[in-house]
Write a protein that binds this DNA or RNA. Structure first.
Lengths: 180, 180
DNA sequence: GTACAAATGCCACTGAGTGGCATTTCAGTT
DNA sequence: AACTGAAATGCCACTCAGTGGCATTTGTAC
């Protein structure tokens, strides 16, 4: 229904009439309208947590994220069409975009928690882990944007791994030469 | 009123009664309730655009951001109390947190636009600029979180510049030695 | 003082989300 | 099959954010 009429144009009353069920029952199963677009949010986050925890503890944050990137790249490539449809829906509504960022923020917290365990102990450990997690999530978001903008044609794993390399080794690139 | 009763607990009707004005007039001046907490959003973004545009075009993205960081660090330190109060307000409401992320997202777009002009021309230019902008905004957000968590005691400029150094040179740090 | 435009107020409305309570459904028991 | 307690569902009324339409006020130029 969202795909046909648009997210905002579809009221919860209409959805309930179509199921059919009562609005009251709807809100017992979904926290709000947005939850329809991001199903099983808790479960996905929990699984992400487990994935992070499963990586060997002596692996660096970057190795952790390379592992996770390859895993998710495969999964997202598998479900490409579904994800593209979801993204088309999200793109048309500021609320949904906001909710997507909120979810990313949850994931970023998990990344930071995973990183802090792998940091050298010391004063700046938590701070550094947090900054790195922020940078990682930033690159992931940018990468996903490009993949979506490209209709999922690009190789997601390559993009992700390249972005991680930039973070690990620094963003070095030839400076723009004036008049060269 | 938000500070006294909390954001969610203060209705627009109450605000209008206090001013006093009508609810209809309120919505002619503010797009929504959240706009009260983030005043002059357009103006701030426009000023940020100008700051980015004012930096010499041969400066690298990192130099751009060092300049901007120093500027904002000074300004934020100046208005420390006000910012802390605003942050306390934002922290209590998911809606406001979402709005803050939305604003950050706008700023990230501007950063990316500024970076892409300073990138070496070529295929991966826009993609790299976007990824870097994402990483930058990620570190900025993490940095601000730490500054807020620290009640604005830390030296914001040092934190910001340090984070930029990490991005430019790569996140290198001694690996955790097992049993060393 | 008149005329015109902009700002404001008023009213009714939609749509998301909640609280309270009655009713149904369903499982286990005898 | 009838009974019982709990969970699921439905129904109704409500709050609050936000919008549309229209009348009224305010201010300003002449």
């Amino acid at each position: 229904m969202f795909a046909e009429r648009g997210y905002a144009a579809t009221t919860i009353d209409e959805i309930c009439a179509a199921v059919p069920t009562s609005k009251r029952t709807f809100f017992r199963y979904f926290a709000d309208k947005e939850a329809l677009v991001f199903p099983n949010r808790r479960g996905r986050l929990a699984r992400f947590q487990e994935l992070l925890a499963a990586v060997r503890p002596d692996q660096s944050p970057f190795d952790v994220f390379r592992t996770v990137t390859s895993l998710f790249a495969a999964e997202y490539t598998e479900n490409r069409e579904q994800l593209l449809a979801q993204q088309r829906l999200i793109a048309q509504s500021p609320e949904l975009l906001a909710r997507e960022r909120e979810i990313d923020s949850d994931w970023e917290r998990e990344i930071a928690a995973s990183f802090v365990r792998r940091m050298p102990p010391g004063e700046s450990g938590p701070w550094l882990a947090d900054v790195l997690a922020g940078a990682v999530m930033g690159t992931v978001r940018a990468t996903m944007r490009h993949w979506y903008a490209d209709d999922g044609q690009a190789d997601l794993e390559s993009l992700g791994l390249e972005a991680i390399d930039y973070l690990e080794r620094g963003f070095v690139f030839s400076r723009q030469e004036p008049d060269a």
